[in-house]
Amino acid sequence: MPNGTLVEISSPRLAPDMRGIGQIIWCRRLGKGYQLGVAFYTSDDLYAIRMMEQLCHIEHYRHILVTEGQSLTLECAAREWIEKFAEHFPTDGL
Rank of each mutant, 00 (worst) to 15 (best):
F85H: 11
V38N: 03
Q70M: 12
L30D: 15
M52P: 01
A77Q: 01
M51Q: 13
R28D: 12
I25Y: 00
L6P: 08
W81M: 02
H88L: 15
S11N: 07
L55A: 10
K32L: 07
A78S: 12
C76M: 15
C76Q: 15
I21C: 06
H60I: 08
R79A: 15
C56G: 14
E53R: 10
L30E: 13
S11R: 09
H57T: 07
G22Y: 05
E59S: 10
I82R: 04
L46S: 10
A39G: 11
F85W: 05
C27M: 08
V66M: 15
G31L: 02
R28M: 11
R50N: 04
R28E: 13
Y41H: 03
F85Y: 10
T42S: 08
P12D: 02
L6W: 13
N3M: 14
A15G: 06
D45Y: 02
L72C: 05
I82M: 10
A78W: 03
G22E: 01
M52F: 02
E80A: 10
M51Y: 11
G4C: 04
T5Q: 06
I9G: 03
G93D: 12
E59H: 10
L6N: 12
A86T: 04
I49C: 01
E87K: 10
E53T: 08
E8Y: 07
G4H: 03
I64D: 15
I24W: 07
I21V: 06
H57N: 11
G22S: 03
F89T: 02
I25T: 07
S11V: 13
R13H: 12
I24F: 07
E68C: 14
S10F: 01
L94W: 05
L65S: 09
F89G: 03
D45G: 01
G93F: 08
S10P: 04
G93H: 11
M52W: 02
H60Y: 14
Y61R: 03
R50M: 06
R50E: 04
E8I: 09
D17K: 13
A78Y: 05
V7Q: 05
A86L: 11
H57D: 14
